[in-house]
Design a protein around this nucleic acid. Structure first.
Ligand SMILES: [Mn+2]
Ligand SMILES: [Mn+2]
Ligand SMILES: [Zn+2]
Ligand SMILES: [Zn+2]
Lengths: 139, 139
DNA sequence: AAATATTTGCAACGATGTTTCTTTTTTTTA
DNA sequence: TAAAAAAAAGAAACATCGTTGCAAATATTT
């Protein structure tokens, strides 16, 4: 069975044209995608609202995760394995390339521990690095 | 001279009612402020646009800095000393309290170094911690 | 006090995201 | 496979956020 369909079924999502297309976009893209990228790449096939709802349901199911960026636009990228409904475990660093503007998950770079004064409690650490991505750096 | 007026003059900003009020809000608040907080706290005294422009000019001058949060809302907080026009040096960690919802600059907690694979270049590291703030933790 | 420079308010606009409701599509059941 | 039930998509309306251009008001300089 098609791997895209497989992922959808595994997550109890009914298989629709829109979900197939959007999930396929994520699988074939190496960087993160913004809502606008998705609208563009799916042409005028789907309503904006459908895209919003699809992204939201993917996030809910742990198929994709959101990436906060300092310019305040949300990006989305595929989760690796361990995430599921109500369980996100994306403890990696994100890179926003200041040359090409793309955003990447650095899945192998684990979020550093942050030590706060003892009056505080740390629950989650989010790290976004601004820098130059691999492909921009090699040119 | 009033310290608020002093700061404005020092930054070559003309002293207006709006700027005085907004700067004074920052000086008297211990957490970070969102645009909405400012609109609320200044009553209906100023137009939305004026608030936007004031915040923008404060950021430009290095009086305040922006704080990215994972819920994609911008917060603003006072800079400490070293920042100036075109020179922001806010290398500290930010905490979003999951109990009270407030956002704080942890001025004494320096952004940890993040080591990326050598194909990448790091330019800036942004760390946002979700956790419990001092005052919420003491209750 | 007058002239100049800067800021403000207002109105209009675009982008983003949400909600409600009806129609269409998908899934389940028989 | 056909009918019934459930889920998703599309459309329209709406809310919020943030920006821009311009005329009126305010602050600064002369
Ligand atoms: Mn990621
Ligand atoms: Mn700060
Ligand atoms: Zn790049
Ligand atoms: Zn708190």
């Amino acid at each position: 069975m098609d791997s895209i369909v497989h992922i959808l079924k595994q997550n109890n999502l009914s298989v629709t044209e829109g979900r197939r297309r959007i999930l396929s976009l994520f699988l074939s893209s190496n960087g993160a995608l913004a809502h606008a990228d998705i609208e563009k790449n799916t042409g005028s096939h789907f309503d904006r609202v459908t895209v919003y709802r699809t992204l939201q349901s993917f996030v809910d199911k742990g198929i994709i995760h959101t990436i906060p960026t300092s310019d305040n636009s949300i990006k989305y990228a595929l989760c690796k394995d361990e995430c599921g409904e109500g369980h996100h475990h994306d403890h990696h660093v994100h890179l926003v390339c200041s040359r090409c503007g793309n955003t990447f998950c650095l899945d192998d770079v684990v979020t550093p521990a942050v030590k706060l004064p003892h009056e505080y409690i740390v629950q989650q650490v989010e790290v976004v690095v601004k820098g130059i991505c691999r492909s921009c750096n090699h040119k």
